[in-house]
């Protein structure tokens, strides 16, 4: 129990410092070191995703950065994806899930290399125009949405992966909104966070009803992640250190190998 709690703490702190969700770290740690069955680990992770989303959402809600209309439109795609993903996860073999997870880890490790430095230029487009006040400059930023259908497709895939593998999917949604759809990065992060919680709730309901949530694992992990995220935020927000990022990428690749090994060993 204390071991699980400390894994949660670690994952929460590292996640908050690097600005990534905990799921991609949590599931390999739980399955490889504690021998937790992968479906239990996935349902544990999805609960932690909800907890961190709600905790972060409490901060974003006051700042009014979230684009509610856009979130709701894309939500129809992510929740539909999560619904099918959750059902699929319950049905398919644990080995296949482990292998899929390995591929996602590799994808994340490589996509981390080129996190967007600059947003695509944000401006009103006549589609879902909205505005917010930049907390740094105090200026009102007005922007509209581009490429909505492509965004809907990507959202469905993000939701599907979230439901299937128990990850938040911010790693897909934030670049999708800021690079493709013309949403400013700050608003992308807040909106993605809003969507993640609801998407995760969709598949969490399925996992709950099917009895995959093990309180002895889920509760210490969730409490640990919540506390760890607080510590991580205090420790220095998003560390932009290149070194730390490289170490993290290496860890992800090692975890990918571990997941492939689990898939092969059965």
């Amino acid at each position: 129990m204390l071991v699980i709690l400390s894994i949660g703490l670690l994952v929460g702190a590292v996640g908050a410092m690097l600005g990534v969700g905990g799921g991609i770290l949590l599931i390999p740690l739980l399955t490889a070191f504690l021998g937790v069955p992968i479906k239990t680990a996935i349902s544990t992770s999805i609960l932690c995703v909800i907890a961190t989303s709600s905790a972060a959402g409490a901060v974003y809600a006051v700042r009014s950065l979230t684009h509610n209309r856009l979130a709701m439109v894309l939500e129809t795609a992510t929740t539909a994806g999560a619904l099918t993903g959750g059902i699929t996860a319950v049905l398919i073999s644990p080995n296949l899930l482990a292998a899929l997870f390995g591929f996602v880890l590799i994808f994340v490790a490589f996509s981390m290399r080129k996190l967007p430095k600059e947003d695509r230029k944000s401006e009103p487009t006549g589609v879902l125009d909205t505005s917010y006040i930049d907390p740094r400059t105090g200026e009102t930023v007005t922007y509209g949405i581009r490429c909505l259908p492509a965004g809907m497709g990507a959202s469905f895939i993000a939701g599907n992966l979230s439901g299937l593998l128990g990850i938040g999917g911010g790693i897909i949604k934030v670049p999708m909104m800021s690079l493709l759809m013309g949403v400013p990065l700050r608003a992308s992060i807040a909106t993605s966070n809003f969507m993640i919680g609801i998407t995760a709730a969709t598949s969490a309901i399925i996992y709950y009803a099917r009895g995959y949530i093990d309180p002895t694992v889920a509760i210490p992990t969730a409490l640990g992640v919540l506390l760890g995220a607080q510590i991580g935020t205090r420790l220095g927000g998003r560390l932009r250190s290149q070194r730390l990022k490289q170490i993290f990428q290496l860890v992800l690749l090692v975890f990918a190998v571990v997941m492939f090994y689990q898939a092969w060993r059965g």
């Binding site: 609960l47 909800i50 609801i198 309180p215 509760i219």
Partner: peptide
């Protein structure tokens, strides 16, 4: 109690949909 707590945790994001 544990099940209720977990359900509440899952239900919290739904509050945001209701807000919207």
């Amino acid at each position: 109690f544990l099940s209720l707590g977990i359900l509440l945790l899952i239900a919290t994001p739904i509050l945001r949909i209701l807000g919207s």
